[in-house]
Design a protein around this nucleic acid. Structure first.
Lengths: 375, 375
DNA sequence: CTGAAAGCGCTTACAG
DNA sequence: CTGAAAGCGCTTACAG
């Protein structure tokens, strides 16, 4: 049985460092300041119920002596960890199918949370499927005050998440309901891309995107872009074609397939920048055809990668950083006031002018529409 | 003064959920199982000192009733949070100068830490410079068991970090010492790129990279690639030139500068993939010159972005995921056994064959070296 | 405005 | 193998 010291628990354990006492606890500080632990606590919390002079004296002392509060102790008593979990999918080291754009969302979330003193914990849920596997402690313990699921989350995991005793925000994922979701308006983005091509005088629209149009592997954004491009083209009375192929399957990019599509009057809309990059590389290497001169091309997506690897691409921009920032904001709103639930948001895209689509001479465009290759 | 209940603190607070009692604490479980809290604790921890039958009964009960341990309570008493902080620089929302490849390192770190039940907290240290600014709680509280600094960290922040009472690993940054650092061997990478060009018959080496060769903004990798390429070229007796320019300054990429550099015998070594992409776009658009056919080009870097935006690039690959994974490993080693300190590591790169450099006919190459353009 | 007391939920050293 | 007791460092409700 150890000796009890109810008057000042944790006191007597201050360590020395460079001649000074390093106070480990508020009790240590209290002894040094000649007040009780409660006063120290209130002073550090900025409570008005402490004499302002005393308060400043204590705060100064704490700063000088390098006192650091113990987050765990506070979390236990306040029943909040001030930490949020970010759920990431597809980061399994065996596959490494991670999506770099997720990082931009994460940085946005973190920027907002950090403003309010919240921390962001990364949670890889790639292999949560098998219950026998090692789950993150985030799922098995009381550890975070909320969760933000990023991107497409498998249904099994979504259900698991919904049973957690903390609020969850769905950021840029396939999950969509009236509350707690935040997404890009990709139909609007595709329509914007089509409109720009029309404005420049292109006379037919070809959409490049992924084939599995509503399979479980498909992200909502690709589905919405496809539908947005199609309906925009039809509304404007333009011929619409689609080239649906696997972005990463070399065989699908056999050049012969694409030659006859490209003409001065063709406006390409690509689902993402990889399609744009692949197509333009192929066209210039095989036939010397240049985007903007020999055909037009707009992309529905933007990202930091595009800024580095295809800056001249005409595109619709959604800042994923902003999306994340807003998701963080939504989470903080939920925590401040659980009811009513936060309404979902759809962000709209901005047009970024590039060089891969350019004004077509009206006459030439008309002729070209007939002959297939004008000017 | 509240009533004391020393026999079973926290008991009596179990909540009901779908007809079952949801045990909040080990005390709740203990009452349900008819044992003491200590036995529950030991059983859940897998202690051998509990009868195996009792142990399994308790674990089963806990699982069935959905008991979740309180991480903060455990952290307080064990004095470890089982969380590691990842220090990120340049993520300031005002600038957004973040580097996407950092994400690959982070995922690697997280994969390793998650295996051992550790969490990763993201810490944006972009504006730590001004003490008045809002610092992350990671720096002001006892919150993480260790820190991993990723990439180039400003000196002021490095010093701050070194004063923290937890171990720190320096992953892929400019900081280098005998312990606790992990880096890519970029001199070796550049030498590898040069060797491949030599093997294919290119007769002169031109290095493309950033100009500020040892300023505070420069990452070690660019400096090492430059020196590695130069010394490798000189060792092999090849003429060596360097084109140092700002990657992101459009004026610096004025095409006229580059035309005379490109020839069938020129082997370009680029510091990173953005240089490679810019140069090859420019060459094909302005003069129809193609990498691999009209000149050779190797890159010292690899990343997931390159896989998407320049897969045919000849390059040296360092998996940043692996680098992060090893940094996580190093951190866990430090925590298990603080002494002796973990020795630093330098990772070596792997060659990835592409199409941007190809075997030159020996005779043609010789002629070309004289005339400037052969075949 | 200040302080003595209770308690957050867990772990551990010790006694039986 | 099991249990009663103490304590981790903090916050909060209450009394003075």
């Amino acid at each position: 049985m150890r000796a009890l010291n109810p008057g000042s628990p944790g006191s007597g354990t201050g360590m020395k460092k460079s001649g000074k006492i390093l106070p480990k606890t508020q009790g240590d500080l209290a002894r040094l300041a000649g007040v009780t632990r409660v006063t120290v606590n209130k002073a550090l919390a900025g409570h008005a119920s402490v004499n302002s002079e005393t308060r400043e004296r204590i705060c100064l002392l704490a700063r000088e002596l390098g006192y650091r509060p113990n987050a765990a102790a506070r979390a236990m008593v306040t029943r909040q960890s001030k930490a949020i979990g970010a759920l990431l999918i597809n980061t399994d080291p065996a596959f490494r199918l991670y999506n770099l754009t997720t990082y931009e969302i994460i940085l946005g979330i973190n920027a907002r949370l950090q403003e309010d003193g919240y921390l962001l914990n990364l949670v890889n849920v790639a292999d949560l499927g098998d219950d026998t596997g090692r789950q993150s402690r985030v799922f098995t313990e009381h550890l975070v005050d909320g969760l933000i699921a990023i991107g497409r989350i498998p249904d099994a995991i979504s259900r698991h998440v919904q049973e957690m005793p903390v609020p969850c925000i769905w950021a840029d994922g396939n999950t969509w309901s009236a509350e707690h979701c935040i997404r890009r308006d990709e139909r609007q983005a595709a329509a914007l891309a089509v409109d720009e091509l029309v404005r420049l005088g292109y006379r037919e629209i070809v959409f490049f995107g992924s084939p599995t149009l509503s399979g479980p592997d498909m992200h909502y954004s690709m589905v919405d872009r496809h539908e947005g491009a199609r309906s925009a083209a039809l509304e404007r009375g333009l011929p619409f074609r689609e080239m649906l192929l696997d972005r990463d399957d070399a065989a699908a990019w056999e050049p012969g397939r694409f030659k006859k599509i490209l003409s001065k009057t063709t406006g390409i809309v690509t689902g993402d920048a990889v399609f744009a990059r692949r197509l333009s590389d192929l066209a210039v290497l095989h036939w010397g055809l240049k985007a903007g001169l020999d055909y037009g091309m707009d992309c529905c997506d933007d990202s930091r990668m595009i800024l580095q690897f295809y800056p001249q691409l005409c595109r619709v921009s959604f800042s994923r950083f902003d999306l994340g920032f807003k998701a963080g904001e939504m989470m903080l709103d939920c925590l401040r006031q659980p009811e009513p639930l936060c309404p979902s948001q759809k962000l709209s895209g901005q047009w970024i002018s590039g060089e891969t689509a350019q004004k077509q001479p009206v006459a030439a465009a008309r002729t070209a529409a007939g002959t297939g290759r004008g000017r």
